[in-house]
Amino acid sequence: MSETVITREEIKEFIKSLQGSYEVFAPVREGGYHRFKQLTGDEAADLDFSNTRLSPKSLLFPQSERMFEFTLDETNEDSHILKETPKEYPPAVVFGIRPCDAKALRLVNVNFDNPEFTDPWWAKRLDSMTFIGLGCNDPCSTCFCTSVGCGPFHEEGLDILLFDLGERYLAKALTDKGEQLLGQGGFQEDADVDTRKRAGELKKEAEHKISSHVPTDKLKDKDLLNLFDAPFWDEVAFACINCGTCTFLCPTCWCFDIQDEVSKNQGDRIRNWDSCMFPLFTLHASGHNPRSEKVQRARQRFMHKLKYYVDKYGNGVACVGCGRCVNYCPVNIDIREVFKLMNEW
């Protein structure tokens, strides 16, 4: 796989040139924060960011998405037949995604594309996308990626990883898809030994800068019911207001709800993000709610990420350490503290 040196100017041109044949999504700053957006015209990516406020999961798994549609018009021969909403999957480039968010997509993939089930929309979008990651030179104090099997220059889920060396980037192709895309740039300069060495150092320095560490080693061996019944949940959940901030900002929360909406004869089946924080998430048709109390709902989120997922998939926790929930929880419930409580219990 190639390792190429690209100047800042060249990469700008390259991204712009890709807009002809790809949909290009990149972080831009709008309002007070960064978000992934499709670049159009002269709009440029803004890479002066720590991370986007919302994770890029919505590029593959939109918050609201029409899945099927139907008509109730009896004069129509397709009346009452559910039809898949036609969708397009043009080749797309996701530029400037952080390694934690790229790993998160692989993690969510176990839910949407596995031997039992494949979610066609997720899978086709994932397939149509090429991911150009940007390593984190300066991780935040709330980043704990290195504790959860990830890192500021983690490569999983990426096709190309960029090392920001100041005036230049080292672009490391990680997959054939990445190699092929880089090839389109016609970049001439292969990274020499010194540059590669510098990139390696950058990675080490960044990992060293990570100041948050969470313990995960004992989670797998914990007794599930014992953790479930642990007395600390009341304390963890007291401040929780059961809003969906943590789940909606989280790059690995994948839960959704399916709703049918009908207006006159036109019907739509729509999939929306849902949140285990909401009472309606588990409300049965009978009226019974197995998670009627907020402590049960808050516990669910942590148990799912740090225990049920661990036990079911055997590939670590369902958290990539991006720190979004830590930063934006309105009442400062900090998952790092919950890691400690659960691991040490």
């Binding site: 939109p62 609201s64 998405e65 029409r66 909406e261 207006s263 006159k264 036109q266 739509d268 729509i270």
Partner: peptide, 8 residues
């Protein structure tokens, strides 16, 4: 007024 949800 909503006739059909404006979603993707």
């Amino acid at each position: 007024v909503k006739t059909r949800a404006e979603v993707v």
